[in-house]
Design a protein around this nucleic acid. Structure first.
Lengths: 185, 185, 185, 185
DNA sequence: CATGAATGAGACTTCATTCAT
DNA sequence: AATGAATGAAGTCTCATTCAT
């Protein structure tokens, strides 16, 4: 009755469930049941539900860091980079039933006690902000203006994600993409 | 020890708690305790926790409708209207410990079963979107372009609120305000 | 499926179980099962397992206070009082399968976090000590000597209870009773 | 990172923890963590937590047997022996944060299933009783009376230890020592 | 001889809700 | 209209133990 790789199965299962229904909407019981693990096996690998959430956020952050680097390392123009990113965002949202940004959603149910979680959320958000600033700096010579435009892209990105979730539609992403392309012209 | 207006006290108490800690982070027990009501009195006035949430969202929506009408009825220029709105948003966020948008936060923990809640969220969001479109239409003659710019303002507003919550800072709001003023020039 | 008087049944059931197997050896699940209550019913009446323990200790303390008062108010001689008390102790231990002193047993598994429990234990022990001092003062004119003898009776009583538990025998109680009578002569 | 003498380290660590917080208050996980051993290494040396407890009690019993023999073999008078023993007890209790008698504390959380543990407790208690009887026999010619007085010393010793633990004070030990000296005069 | 992953059972506590009065 | 007691289900987490390597 022993099954190996419990940790991986738990992390993968939890990732899906947290994404679909939110950190507070998913219990340990459901996670371990769907992962086919015993409760104690879970706590062997993760000291708490909170730490599981942190592992999930960290894993996604690593992946998004890769995506950012790949885009910035491509031979696309800044506008094309932004457009590609928003297109990728639209695909992601559509595929995920418009569940929005996992970081923002998690932050919505985390109080100041969850400092590990909150730190990861801020880390990811600042990292994404930096990504947009770098794109902006590629097409805008003035450094200060480039930073401001980068931040504007970041805010558009965040709003597009949030409202696509709230309204279950993709038009906010399209609006944001158009605005981004305009800002980078 | 009889206290009148139990329903109002419950609604007010729940509003504060839901706002501060999120719908899923507050239990009925805490609400009735802080409101000074009995368990069964609560269920006399609200058939479920969900319906209490709906009443809260509805109440806030009514207030924001008033705010929108007052702004649109003022003699401010479109840019001034937008600027005033974002300034008001900054004040609201600062006063509320950067808890962000109650609607988005509630949506983050509601699944498709909570259709009443989701409907109110969409109602409010569409109403806010319409508010920004009306502002845009005041300064942009072309109707289609005005709608697009209004939507852009709406997305900026949403992103500013979300990231102010995530990063516990006001710069996203300032970025959004600057962008809004620029778009309306 | 509703049953009234849950609190009383819980307290009675818990008392028996705590006494028989110790505070740490009995779980909430067993208590509520034997009491025929739902788990949430338990927590309606007692905020925690610890507070249930406190209620149990308090209840026993009240009973022992009555016993002390009744003995001291009787027309027995001091020696007869002490003898009666140790006889009563022997009966109690025999009836209870030699489980010893509930207070000492509970103290053996309570750390400094359980300050409410520890306070009740000390309260009861000091109260019992006072009871023995009062008996001693009835037959010993010198106040200081009476207090010392009273304390000696108290220590004998405690040791008799403890070793009757450890050795599952009554001779320690008989030894203590003989010593007590001798000390009061 | 290999560490030798895993068994000894486990026994030593467990001894400290069992003494400080009681048998039921310490888990295997904490023991092996503090001892720096792996779970399975523990079960290689001890078939169960219960058997670890037995090893601990046995070890302490051996040490106390030595102490008894050394005292009885000394050239002290019976009164001096008793006084020295109670002084040693006071030092032990003060040093150990008034945790009382490990045997009695362990017995308080052991039911009839733990027959190995209970047997060791009885063994140790009878051995201590015998020690006091031997002291008494040194100063009391009549054999029967010596045995009774020895038992009385034993009960005083037990009560002093128990109440020093309950009340976190040393006066019960002093009372018992005074009584012991008086009984041996 | 040593290890770390896996486990079933159970720990204490809280959830939103309903009942009888 | 108002109440406090009662509830089933679920919450997070820990227990002593065993397994394959």
């Amino acid at each position: 009755m022993k099954k190996p790789n419990a940790k991986e199965r738990i992390l993968e299962t939890a990732g899906e469930l947290f994404f679909q229904r939110g950190y507070s909407g998913v219990g340990i019981n459901e996670i371990i049941e769907k992962a086919g693990t015993a409760k104690a096996s879970f706590y062997q690998h993760f000291p708490s539900k909170e730490s599981l959430c942190e592992a999930w956020l960290q894993e996604m952050h690593d992946r998004s860091t890769d995506t950012h680097a790949r885009l910035l390392g491509s031979d696309l123009s800044p506008q094309e980079m932004a457009a590609a990113y928003f297109t990728h965002l639209a695909d992601f949202l559509k595929a995920g039933d418009f569940r929005g940004c996992p970081y923002s959603n998690t932050g919505a149910v985390s109080d100041e006690n969850c400092c590990g979680i909150l730190k990861l959320i801020r880390l990811h958000k600042e990292s994404t902000r930096k990504f947009f600033r770098e794109i902006a700096s590629l097409s805008i010579p003035d450094a200060a203006r480039a930073e401001a435009i980068g931040d504007r892209l970041f805010v558009l990105y965040s709003g597009a994600t949030a409202e696509a979730q709230n309204l279950k539609t993709l038009w906010p992403v399209e609006i944001a993409r158009d605005a981004a392309v305009e800002l980078l012209s």
